[in-house]
Design a protein around this nucleic acid. Structure first.
Length: 217
DNA sequence: AGGATGATTCTCT
DNA sequence: GAGAATCATCCTT
């Protein structure tokens, strides 16, 4: 346990930014499009433990993906359910792109597009374990406890400064990218997705059990 | 042109 | 556990 400036007690949550064995955030290989061009639930599981990197104003922010949700195939809960529209068009494009949308008028959420072109499927990135650029994340998130910096799809986007401007970005590019190397993931838990009205029974939410950074403890 | 609707978060009880 | 905030998008007149 450590003490924050405000005196709250909280768990020590972050891996050392330069721990041995962690890849270089700038130069390490990124996941190729072929990784994403597979069954969406498989991609959702295998994104856990990968490092998502955000280049923001010359600074590198990063976090380990600890929670995801699969959307598709044949999924009434998916934005793609009623076909392609202007908002969800990126979902129907090539895999390995970022699909960013606005919900409730104020919250951005990000997805990794999966499956072959023409198929509208994606993986919602729901939570990250902050790894680098924590000062910027704290700034972007308004000084909440570190455990809450990226513990939800909109929180993660706010922490990383991801908005509609990043919609369609190539995840093998330089603005937002995901590394190929994976930190050890002991177990993966599967359960119902959060906040949806349709197809609530499908166990398409995946997370690393025990992580203090998932959206629900 | 207008109304309904969220893959959420925060604050309060 | 409930309610509000807040608006781009989508679907119906």
């Amino acid at each position: 346990m450590t003490r924050t400036q405000e005196g709250r007690s909280e768990e020590r949550v972050c891996r050392p930014a330069h721990a041995p064995g962690l890849p270089s955030l700038r130069t390490a290989a990124r996941l190729p499009a072929a990784f994403y061009e597979r069954e969406t639930t498989t991609v959702a599981r295998e994104l856990l433990g990968r490092i998502l990197v955000r280049r923001l104003e010359g600074e590198l922010l990063a976090g380990v993906i600890v929670e995801t949700e699969a959307y598709g195939p044949d999924d009434p809960a998916s934005h793609a359910w009623r076909g392609e529209t202007r908002r969800n068009a990126v979902m129907f494009g090539p895999p390995g792109r970022l699909y960013v949308y606005l919900t409730y008028g104020m919250h951005w959420c990000m997805n990794a597009v999966t499956g072959p072109p023409g198929i509208g499927e994606a993986v919602l990135i729901r939570a990250l374990e902050p790894l680098a650029g924590l000062e910027a994340m704290r700034r972007n998130r308004g000084g909440v406890p570190d455990r809450l910096l990226c513990s939800g799809p909109a929180r993660a986007c706010q922490a990383l400064g991801i908005t509609g401007a990043e919609n369609g970005a190539d995840l093998a590019g330089d603005a937002v990218y995901i590394l190929e190397e994976r930190v050890p993931v002991e177990r993966v838990a599967a359960g119902p997705r959060i906040g949806i009205r349709h197809a609530v029974e499908r166990p398409w939410r995946f997370h690393i059990p025990g992580s203090p950074h998932v959206s629900r403890r």
